[in-house]
């Protein structure tokens, strides 16, 4: 008896799917979506307009140039002379101590 009731309940539950009423989308939905789409399109085109491929290439070339210049500077610097200058500047040279 209990099983029959449960089977009936299950059948009734599945049955509700046959009585779903049609729901319509809001009347402003289309306009809302179109606005969003064109707003996004505008954002993209503004970026495209400002950051042109020529400008992109120039920016990359500039970054590469700065990197190359700094590397060149670091590896061509005379380390020992820099150290001497540094020592002299702070009176740390062996030939110029406080005891002398």
């Amino acid at each position: 008896m209990k099983n029959e009731i449960i089977s009936e309940q299950i059948k009734d539950t599945f049955e509700v799917l046959n009585s779903i009423e049609k729901t319509t989308v809001s009347p402003f939905f289309k306009q809302r979506v179109l606005n969003k789409i064109f707003l996004k399109e505008k954002e993209i085109s503004v970026v495209k307009l400002w950051f042109t491929p020529k400008l992109q290439l120039t920016a990359i070339a500039l970054v590469l140039l700065v990197n190359a210049a700094s590397l060149f500077y670091v590896f061509n610097e005379n380390n020992s002379s820099t150290m001497d200058n540094f020592a002299k500047e702070y009176s740390l040279s062996s030939t110029n101590t406080f005891l002398n």
Partner: peptide, 9 residues
């Protein structure tokens, strides 16, 4: 509606 909007985007 929110999901449908995401779909069209």
């Amino acid at each position: 509606e929110d999901v449908a909007q995401e779909v069209f985007l």
